[in-house]
Design a binder for these strands. Sequence first.
DNA 1: AAAAAACCGTTGCAGTTGCAACATTTGGAG
DNA 2: CTCCAAATGTTGCAACTGCAACGGTTTTTT
Lengths: 220, 220
Amino acid sequence: MGLSSPDFDECPLFAGIAREERAGLWACLRPVERLTQRGETLVAVGDPVDGLGVVLEGAVDVSRVDENGNRVLLTHIGAGGLFAEAFVCAGLREAPVSVTAAPYARVAFLSLPALAASCARACPAHAALIRNLVHVLARKNLQQADHLDVLSRRTIRERLLTYLSQLAGPDGRGTLPFGRAALADYIGAERSALCRELSRMQREGVLTYRGSGFKLSCPR
Amino acid sequence: MGLSSPDFDECPLFAGIAREERAGLWACLRPVERLTQRGETLVAVGDPVDGLGVVLEGAVDVSRVDENGNRVLLTHIGAGGLFAEAFVCAGLREAPVSVTAAPYARVAFLSLPALAASCARACPAHAALIRNLVHVLARKNLQQADHLDVLSRRTIRERLLTYLSQLAGPDGRGTLPFGRAALADYIGAERSALCRELSRMQREGVLTYRGSGFKLSCPR
DNA sequence: AAAAAACCGTTGCAGTTGCAACATTTGGAG
DNA sequence: CTCCAAATGTTGCAACTGCAACGGTTTTTT
């Protein structure tokens, strides 16, 4: 099993921990790695919760499919990001969501005991790890709040403007991390209705877009 | 200032901490108490984030109002519950939501430094406090996921069924914690449209309701 | 290069919902 | 008991959206 400790500068779990310490700490956590095929499902709904996930390379989507077949895209997580940390920390036994490679990913799972317990080496970095975990959980909370902000709007146009404003810089420009189908799943709309509204908004001059790039006419 | 340490058996922040220790620990956290009038606003959008909130008595609503005047009810928190913990832990300076008494509340604010730092007494309970904080944050995450599950549905009927299923027991019976207006704000719909759909569903035999009690015909 | 698959955009139609205005019921206060 | 205010329920209408079906373009596979 390759215990390669990649570049964790961008992984918030290791913030504030000296680079020399990271390799030892990483080994200490006994990670279980997994490399996926294109679009493969890493975790399915109902699977036992193996541990906290770390995206080493690539990206994953966290989603759910309701009884009507509508997919809800909950989050998209790139390299360095964590997933399933809330389920692990809350003590869930079964995953309430599925995690799929988007489209490729190399991930590692860390068990909660390894994270929470002081390790045999009693490494001081463990304390920092827990503090970082609090920070990660809190920021996930804020991300979910942003998603709720989007989904609480009553029309597709408002949901789009809310989401695009979150993505856009001060100049109103931004890049979508999704294609149209995934975007529709994220904002809780029908793909065709989303396309219709997008072109309507462009026709009315509210925004311009091409591919995954866009520019809001009136940045909020 | 009354530093009364109320019954914290139900406060998840103090889970697993012996009752004798709680009083000392509570004082150690230097809580700032506040008692509200009916419906008063405890925290407004943009207010500086004073600290983590603990509901000592009564209940509070956490909500946001968008630019169209639509209110979004994010959560309702009863005695023993926490609020604003994610904003504090993520290091936000300004509150992105408002907190109002629903309808009465006695609350205390705990500053993050007091929570995070080992206190002067070096009380061992502090470590338990941090572990509990992780647990609280993780469960808030799950609550938000439930709310997302509701808001991601495409029709009022589906949103209602999803929410009522979350509330109902195995027999399909449950009690709403909100009135109609607040319920509408929580599920992201118009109050009148909500009423219309409720009575339509009762007419069709999907459920029965009276006041705040309800019973689903087909518990999921 | 050809075929297949994925992605994006368009449109007609029926059902749902926001919105506004009004009717009815409930719960106190005097 | 009466009156008032808040909460709840009802309805018409215009607008929005889900749904299904289709055409064009790009990317991937064979």
